[in-house]
Amino acid sequence: MIQDERVVLPEWGGSANLARRFAREIALSQPPPIRASLFVTCIIDQLYPEVGVSVVRVLRRCGVEVDFPEGQTCCGQPLYNSGFTQEARKLAVRTLDALDGSQYVVVPSGSCGAMLRVFYEDLFADDPVMLERAEALRDRVYEFTEFLTEVLGVDTSPVERPAADGPAATRTVAYHPSCHLLREMRVREAPQQLLNNAVSVELVDLPDAEQCCGFGGTFAVKYPHISEEMLADKLASIRQSGADTVTACDMGCLMHIGGAISRQNLPVSVQHIAQVLDGGEG
């Protein structure tokens, strides 16, 4: 664990100075290298690869040795949520195989993270061998922002802010806490702490932030009339927040929210939190 380090996280994509300084501090304190496997999630892999790139960049800047187990595909949650437990188990086995031996598993999604950490145990409740493997995985799985704060201790040390002549706040960001991150993985503070500490970010209040956006996987197409009502309310909240960027820790929710923002041509950019912390690139 890195503790009592002055970690600069967010937008040093542009600041070679800060990057060097950080690297020097890491080198000086010489913590044991932290190795983490990225479980990138199928939605990022296939639809939003740039998010995965930002995740890797942020982790590396924090001194993490990142690897990508190539056997991974999907965690099985879409199947599990639709009741297809048998099919979901096959994908869960594949995922467990791929992630065997990882020191930490970082998942840039509260929803897929919940699948790995919480639902695999339910999935294998009647299979002692697999259950043991699921339990072993449980304690190594971290959602991306949770990993930064809990394991790397980014939240316990004040994020260093540049001197007065540093970059001023340039973007207003609204954070949507995704349901599974909040209520299955129980991660509430970490993303907001990171955003609060990000120098170029002004975190604004999102009204009714903890209301579901109406995605819910297949729910969005099975009951579009309800989903769209929920989505409309979420969009109204985003508009009301005055943010120029909406972010979350789940590309599922952001595909849903972003799909409507795009349809309505709203002047709001939609970014995964890793992209925001990566200086808005990607």
Partner: peptide, 22 residues
């Protein structure tokens, strides 16, 4: 798909997946 696109745009698969870029 149309039940999605009646209110939202849908992204298409990326030209290069994350694993390609990795």
């Amino acid at each position: 798909v149309s039940r999605w696109t009646r209110a939202r745009d849908l992204p298409v698969p990326a030209e290069r997946s994350f694993r390609d870029r990795w």
